[in-house]
């Protein structure tokens, strides 16, 4: 079942991508979607705009975030040999939240939230992304500094958690002293969304995510060696410290850039690698990593599709959909196994 699953996963991804383009608050016939994408003129002029300005970047964002978080989660689970590890375990998303909180909650004295947001202008989202990236990078830098010194991987895990608590405490403090409107804007950011990424932003997001995935790909062999534990990995000739640094760079870049542009997206990062293990029944990262990547992308697309409530004007918070629809699906897959597949 190991290799044969890949064509199926690719098909699933293509299907989800197609659905995500075709469905939304405005319904566009599928034939028209294909027609427009191939460069034809649409029946209604607005359809091309909707497709190119909104749905295409959004679908692409979903694919990237899904792939990024699943890959990152898989790396963290193996590095820390802990099935509960997720992309945010080293405090990267807490750092990003802190950055965003400082911008939304901490900046400027008066003014309502609305004027504040409009004050940020067309680059409003971009400012948030920048703040989030800086916050994530700050935490990442601290963790990396430690990773080069610390011998024991577990110490790193605990320190990462501590950084996370520290950042959360500052965010709570900011919320405590902020106006309700601004807190609302901040909580909107924490709900997660794929629709905030515009084409100019994609110029940053896409290369950063691809770079993270590329580094992850080169870490497949070290990850396999790390399955045996740090000592054995070292005895196999692996430079464990260096491998650890690169794995953290890759995983945190992926998690950080996703959080920066889409807010913290829960659940995908921890669940998808388990599903991949359950379905593929292997611990070999040469299969697990591409499988997680494909599944994560498809899952993110489908979750976003549900969040749009096709045919209606309402949009549900992404993280709510992730959990409400994701948990039953994933529980059913995992519980069907006799035992939770360990790493």
């Amino acid at each position: 079942m190991s290799r044969q699953i890949f064509p199926f996963l690719v098909l699933l991804l293509v299907l989800a991508f197609g659905l995500s383009l075709a469905f939304g608050s405005v319904s566009i016939p599928f034939t028209q979607v294909v027609h427009i994408l191939l460069g034809g003129t649409p029946e209604k002029a607005a359809w091309a705009d909707i497709l190119f300005k909104f749905r295409l970047p959004k679908a692409l964002t979903a694919v990237l975030v899904g792939a990024a978080l699943s890959t990152s989660g898989l790396q963290m689970q193996t590095l820390f040999r802990n099935p509960l590890a997720d992309p945010y375990i080293l405090g990267v998303s807490s750092g990003a939240s802190l950055g965003v909180a400082l911008v939304i909650l901490g900046m400027g004295g008066g003014g309502t939230a609305l004027t504040f947001i409009s004050g940020l202008g067309t680059f409003g989202n971009f400012t948030l992304a920048l703040a989030a990236s800086l916050g994530a990078a700050l935490v990442l830098g601290a963790v990396l500094l430690l990773a080069r010194r610390v011998q024991n991987t577990l110490t790193l895990l605990v320190t990462g958690l501590m950084f996370g608590y520290l950042a959360s405490a500052v965010v709570s403090l900011l919320i405590y002293f902020s106006q309700p409107e601004r807190v609302q804007v901040f909580s909107l950011w924490t709900a997660g969304s794929f629709s905030g990424v515009t084409w100019p932003q994609m110029n940053v997001f896409l290369p950063a995510a691809l770079l993270g995935l590329l580094i992850a790909l080169t870490m497949v062999k070290p990850l396999n060696a790390l399955l045996l534990g740090d000592d054995y990995a070292r005895s196999l000739g692996l430079n464990v410290r260096r491998a650890r640094v690169w794995i953290i760079v890759s995983a945190s870049l992926l998690a950080g850039v996703s959080t920066a542009f889409c807010g913290p997206i829960w659940f995908i990062g921890v669940a998808v690698p388990h599903v991949a293990r359950s379905l593929l029944k292997t611990a070999d990262h040469r299969s697990l990593l591409p499988a997680s990547l494909l599944m994560g992308a498809a899952f993110a697309l489908l979750a976003d599709l549900i969040a749009q409530l096709p045919g209606s004007q309402r949009v549900l918070p992404l993280n709510v959909v992730m959990s409400l629809f994701g948990v039953p699906v994933i529980l059913s897959i995992i519980l069907r196994q006799k035992q939770l597949r360990q790493l």
């Binding site: 040999r81 054995y232 611990a283 070999d284 597949r341 790493l343």
Partner: peptide
């Protein structure tokens, strides 16, 4: 070594 999913051969090939 706690990697229950690894097969004997996969482990040896490491």
């Amino acid at each position: 070594v706690e990697s229950p999913l690894l097969t004997a051969r996969e482990l040896v090939s490491l």
